[in-house]
Structure formats: C-alpha cells, structure tokens
C-alpha cells in the first residue's frame, strides 16, 4: 500500500525521530510513505475564521496532491493532521470558502475529496491493530504506558471523527497491540498549553504538570504522544517519566529501531 505522506516542518528538524520511525515502521508493515513533493508548512494551528484563506492554501495543495494520485493523505504530527483535516472539512462544507480557495489553485478545482488519515488511524483502519499485533517482534509486555492525546488529535470531534473525544481508545488499543499495558487517565485529552508557552510559560507549566501528575497517579511509567509541542511542553516543564513519540515505541516493537542522533 502506498500513501501520500505529509511530514511537516518539525519532523524535518526537531522531531526527526518521529519522522524516521514513521518511515521504518510503515515499511515494516508493508506501507510505503511517499513524501508529497514540495509540501509546505501547514501553519501549526488552524485558524477557525471563515474569512482566512491564504493561510490554508498549503494544506489544500497537499490535499489536492493526494487526491490526484488517488492516495490517502497520511500525517503523523498531531498539528499537521488537525490543520489539514480541518481545512479539508472546510473545503467540503463551506462553499464560499472553497470557491475563494479554488481561485488560487492553478488547474482543476478541489472540493475536499481526499481522505485524511492520522498515522494512528492508518494503523487502525488501513493496517489493522490485529495485523500490527502479529508483526510485533519485541513485545513491550509489562510496560505501563499512558497515551497522551492532547487536544489536536481529537477536537473538534465534528471534524476529526477519530475517536470518542472524551473517552478515546485508539492509542490505548495501539499500546495493547504492542503488548504493553495501557494506563487510562482522565487528563489524557486535556491541553498541555500548546503555543501558550510563548505568551504565558506559567500557564503551560500548570497544564503540563497536571497531565503528568495524573498519568503517574494512574501508574504510568512512560507517556507517548504524536505531537512535538506536547512532548516539548511536558519535558520542558519537568516530566519525570519518559515522554516519547508513539512511532519510536512502534519501531522498537517492530524491531526496526536503531540509534539515531536526531
């Protein structure tokens, strides 16, 4: 299976691990990630205003690319996934917006036809967690791992449609597929503070600490995430258990992890 892959800015720089392990794991699972040519940064956050057009064009170009190749668009960074899925939804549901966007596009118009998958959704819906389970070489049995969804993976649910936004299971099912114990805790879908660490570092610290504290109280020995900013905020604000990208864990379980200096 071949998919159009949108890595995003951070995965080419500070989050090279997330990118590298995505490739290696996908290939171990029989999925080829074809990097979208000349992709541009998604912008990090989706601007919900209906009259914002220019900031969403990079996402539309990536979507159109995948659609024209008849491939699902797969992203691994929570932020890219959120922005691209929200943009695609706006293209499907807001005709005025789509018309404005299409005036910027060179050739045929695009109306939200592409299918957007987060890497986790790809594992669940295209690969299948049962298949994943079979391919695990190094079972992570006995590890108590907490999934940290943050806000971007699940919300707004009307658009993301990834899982139950208040009681998600996709990452827990992923953890279990790798043989580990999933630790369920209430703060797993609460915000780490996101970009607010620029404006109010204290606010980000309070939010991040509350997440780690809650995960640890529930017995977690490790937290996994799909978002470079979540990882940064949790670590910078003193997480005293490892915070790792879910793809790193995946690569380890699939036996394709190797030392990198990313």
């Amino acid at each position: 299976m071949k998919v159009s892959y949108f890595p995003g800015c951070t995965l080419k720089n500070k989050a090279k691990d997330l990118d590298l392990y995505s490739y290696k794991s996908a290939s171990a699972l029989g999925v080829t990630l074809e990097e979208i040519e000349n992709w541009q940064c998604c912008g990090g956050v989706f601007t919900s205003a209906d009259d914002e057009v220019a900031t969403k064009l990079s996402s539309v170009r990536a979507l159109k690319y995948a659609f024209e190749r008849n491939e699902p668009l797969v992203t691994v960074c929570s932020a890219c996934h959120n922005v691209i899925k929200q943009t695609n939804y706006a293209m499907q549901t807001n005709k005025t917006f789509a018309d404005k966007v299409n005036r910027y596009m060179a050739e045929d118009s695009y109306n939200g036809e592409a299918e957007v998958y987060h890497y986790l959704e790809m594992l669940r819906d295209l690969v299948g967690f049962d298949t994943l389970k079979e391919k695990v070489v190094n079972s992570l049995k006995g590890k108590k791992i907490a999934a940290y969804y943050g806000c971007l993976l699940l919300r707004p649910n009307k658009v993301m449609r990834m899982d139950d936004p208040e009681n998600p299971t996709i990452m827990e099912d992923f953890i279990r597929a790798l043989g580990a114990d999933a630790v369920v805790y209430a703060k797993r879908n609460e915000c780490c503070g996101g970009y607010i660490s620029v404006e109010s570092p204290d606010s980000a610290r309070r939010n991040s600490n509350a997440v780690v504290k809650n995960a640890k109280a529930a017995g977690a020995e490790m937290i996994i995430t799909a978002c470079p900013l979540c990882k940064y905020n949790l670590e910078k604000n003193g997480a005293d258990i490892p915070v790792v990208y879910f793809t790193e864990l995946l690569a380890e379980a699939l036996g394709v992890k190797e030392d990198t200096n990313a």
């Binding site: 139950d164 208040e166 009681n167 369920v184 805790y185 209430a186």
Partner: peptide, 11 residues
C-alpha cells in the same frame, strides 16, 4: 453516560 466521559463515568 458513555459519551459524557468528561465526567469520568467510565473511569
């Protein structure tokens, strides 16, 4: 109450 887990009914 399954869909109102912000109140942690299932947890």
């Amino acid at each position: 109450m399954d869909k109102f887990d912000e109140f942690a009914y299932s947890q």
